[in-house]
């Protein structure tokens, strides 16, 4: 439908997945430009998935220098100090990713997320941010929303054996197959800021506890001026205090945010590789859906906890918005 046909080489390489999503979706994938910010294990998994899927280009941003800790759940980096010494995480991951699929252009950009202007985001169709502050998430999401074209925006974070994905597809139209018919659908997404501003009391009682716990930690990081991921077990009293305050302010029972869950999330801050694989897989699938415009995308949060094994979708949006 886009006129250009897949090459013989592409048809051979992508044979099995074209059988899943069709040649049309494959063509759209090959024209999509994806930005990722923050190269930890989950994002490495995601990058592998979409490079294999055959996106047009992938741009990596992470100026941090590689350390043993950063490599713990990242299979993109050879565990050889001679190789990683002095290079940034983005540079190291770029080298491996290029190797996965020669048909995808993988490159590195430098800079802090907060320093990127609207024009920067204009180069992309999909933006995925990880390991960044609440303020940075809100800002990046806002700048994507200012553009005339639709940029699909995602945040992803894993702590201990839990993971969270946030999705903003703005005003999104897509098609899906129901029985033999193809039907057109439409979804309205809130921004990250709008979503996290929905009063907790307005949310269904059964909303995933992880949602609230992640917000508490996010707010704690912001209040204490911590870097993302730098809230540790020593902070437990402070985190619990903030939880209490937030629950009071939101007029919800404190049982919405179990103490033991918060404790788990800040005890072990390194990612758990199986959870990286799962969250990176779900995120990859979502991005492929958004680019191809096929299939129900998730709206607008996804949570996984290895402890109970559930992978849950939550719609966190103001029920009155847009009415």
């Amino acid at each position: 439908m886009d006129g250009e046909e897949l090459t013989e080489q592409e048809t051979a390489l992508y044979d099995r997945q074209i059988r899943v999503w069709g040649a049309d979706a494959q063509r759209r994938l090959s024209k999509a430009h994806v930005l990722v910010y923050g190269m930890k294990g989950t994002v490495a998994e995601f990058c592998k998935n979409i490079v294999l899927a055959g996106v047009g280009s992938l741009t990596l941003v992470d100026d941090r220098v590689a350390t043993e800790e950063a490599l713990s759940s990242n299979f993109l980096i050879p565990l050889d100090e001679n190789v990683y010494n002095g290079k940034t995480l983005a540079e190291l991951c770029c080298d491996s990713l290029k190797d996965f699929n020669p048909m995808v252009r993988v490159s590195v950009e430098k800079g802090d997320l907060l320093s990127f202007g609207v024009d920067f985001f204009n180069k992309f169709d999909v933006v995925v941010v990880s390991c960044c502050s609440l303020a940075a998430k809100k800002m990046a999401n806002d700048r994507c929303r200012k553009l005339s074209k639709r940029v699909a925006f995602y945040t992803v974070d894993c702590r201990d054996s839990c993971g969270e994905i946030f999705v903003d597809l703005q005003d999104y139209r897509y098609s899906k197959k129901k029985l033999e018919e193809t039907i057109e659908c439409q979804l309205q997404y809130p921004s990250f800021e709008e979503a996290v501003s929905v009063p907790w009391r307005a949310l269904p009682r059964k909303t995933s506890k992880l949602y609230f716990a992640m917000r508490v930690i996010e707010n704690y990081e912001e209040a204490e001026g911590r870097n993302p991921g730098e809230v540790l077990i020593a902070d437990l009293p402070g985190v619990l205090k903030l939880k209490k305050e937030l629950c009071t302010a939101q007029s919800v029972n404190e049982s919405h945010v179990p103490d033991n869950l918060l404790e788990r999330l800040i005890t072990n801050t390194t990612e758990f590789p199986p959870v990286c694989a799962i969250i990176g897989g779900i995120l990859g699938q979502e991005v492929i859906k958004a680019i191809s415009g096929k299939g129900d995308p998730l709206k607008n949060f996804f949570f996984f906890d290895a402890l109970d094994g559930k992978g849950i979708i939550e719609d966190i949006s103001d029920p009155n918005a847009g009415k």
Partner: peptide, 15 residues
């Protein structure tokens, strides 16, 4: 021919 994508395999491997 089995329809196969990387993402599902990654998720299943994690599980």
């Amino acid at each position: 021919i089995v329809h196969a994508v990387a993402t599902t395999n990654a998720i299943i491997a994690g599980l």
